Simulated assay, not measured.
Amino acid sequence: MGRVFKERTSVNEALQLFLESFSSLRHTEELPLEACTGRVLAEPVISGRDVPHYRRAAMDGYAVRASDTSGASPANPVFLQLSDEVEEGTSIWVHTGAALPEGADAVVMVEDTFTSGDMVEIRSQVYPGKNVGQIGEDIKKEDPVFEEGHLLRPCDAAVLASLGLDRVKVFRKPVVAVIPTGDELVSRDRAGDVPPPGMVLETNGLMASLYVEKWGGIPRYTRIVPDRPESIKEAIQANLDADMILLSGGTSVGKRDHAPGVVESMGRLLVHGVGVSPGKPVALGVIDEIPVVCLPGYPVAGLVALYFFVRPGIRKLGSVPQLPETILRKRLTAKISSKIGYVNFIRVIFEGDRVRPLTGAKSGALSSVAKADGYVLVPEHIEGYEEGQEVDVFLVE
């Protein structure tokens, strides 16, 4: 490879090329409901029973025949006798969720009654079915409950449990190999020692691994690999059983930047150089049908590549549905300047109902992301935004 970027690809085009280069995983596994939250259903769920499977009281009160309450009001109450069964002129006390007694077709709320001895004063007329949960009112037998591809939440697990299920079939999580590269990196096993000048603790791999886990993947965080093509190649070969490979560092055009060239020698290099700032040196490829992302070594540039390419890549592999992102509309307290031809990732801090851009925050300053509440994406065709202008703010995950 030459020592310059072959070309600068737009973010949207780069993402499309990347996502089209691999297929979703179709491997499945069965999990207990207790472990299914955040997983994706691998098959539709059809109800095998009615929920509820019996008529039940929807309120605390008295089960009655609705016809016995005709005309009842506070000024003109109807008196019914407490009994062990419901028939003409009688009633039975019921709790919420209790089976409705035979002969009853309604429940009078306790608030609309007054009890004295074995007589109940009914102060409200009810109609058949009032305050009664009918069989199958929630879910009917043979009803479709969830479709394949549904992202399961805790409330969904409760619905599945109500159907009598204790396990569910979901798509397997993608395994993502995270391979940090760089002669300047020091293992965090030695975090207690201050590295000598020119050496830094390896933190990008940690960040990438945690985001992989957050987005639904299983990270495989490897040892640090030296800046040598043969070493990077060996690390990739050792992880070709993964579903995605992330190489952190060595993506630019310097003498020690070998990652894109190694990917190209082993498979297809789809993109090297993307119109995003920070994050231009990102490279995307595929080896043996396994997607590969080469993350820039500067921490914020690497984070941008994670957001723009790794997150959607994991979602495609795991068949995770695309959910709408939380976007806030806020006014700027100061002007934002940006590069034409690049999508600019601008970190911002909330100040009341406005946002303030973080100035002087370079791509090597990861703490600027930790300080930020969110970020603004300035499109490639816009020079920036003026103070007071309303912008879309994405939350930092």
Rank of each mutant, 00 (worst) to 15 (best):
D189K: 15
V159L: 15
T359E: 11
V108M: 05
L100A: 04
V94R: 04
G182L: 14
E29Q: 10
G313R: 13
L17Y: 05
P154M: 10
R153W: 14
V159D: 07
L160H: 05
D227W: 09
L100K: 11
Y54L: 10
G97E: 03
F146K: 15
I346E: 07
G205R: 15
L163G: 08
L366T: 02
Q81D: 12
V263K: 02
A66T: 02
T115K: 15
G318H: 11
P74L: 14
T69F: 06
G89P: 06
A158C: 00
A365L: 08
W215R: 11
Y211Q: 10
E88N: 01
R329G: 00
E102S: 02
G341E: 03
S277L: 07
L303R: 10
V159Q: 06
C294D: 00
V253Q: 06
P196I: 10
A191I: 13
G360P: 08
L317D: 02
V376T: 03
E383P: 13
G205F: 13
A235P: 11
E386A: 15
R354D: 08
A208T: 12
L163W: 10
R356D: 11
R315A: 11
R356M: 06
E386F: 09
P44C: 04
H381K: 11
S338Q: 03
G217H: 08
H53T: 01
L284T: 01
G217S: 08
D392G: 03
I236T: 01
R347W: 03
P52T: 00
R39T: 07
L33W: 02
F394I: 10
V376W: 00
M1D: 14
I327N: 04
E7M: 12
K316E: 09
R26E: 12
P219A: 06
Q237I: 02
K362V: 08
S252F: 14
K316N: 05
G352R: 09
R311P: 06
R256N: 12
V86P: 02
P260S: 09
N239V: 01
Q389T: 05
V348Q: 12
N344R: 00
K6M: 12
P174Y: 13
L246V: 00
S83E: 04
S91W: 06
G192I: 01
G364I: 05
S368K: 11
K371R: 12
G182E: 12
M207H: 13
V168L: 15
I122S: 05
G254L: 13
H27V: 02
L317Q: 02
K141D: 09
A334S: 08
P379T: 01
C155V: 14
G341N: 01
V159Y: 12
T203S: 15
A361T: 01
D257K: 06
P312R: 05
A301I: 03
P312K: 10
D183L: 12
T113N: 15
K130S: 15
S338L: 03
I135S: 03
G297E: 14
E383W: 04
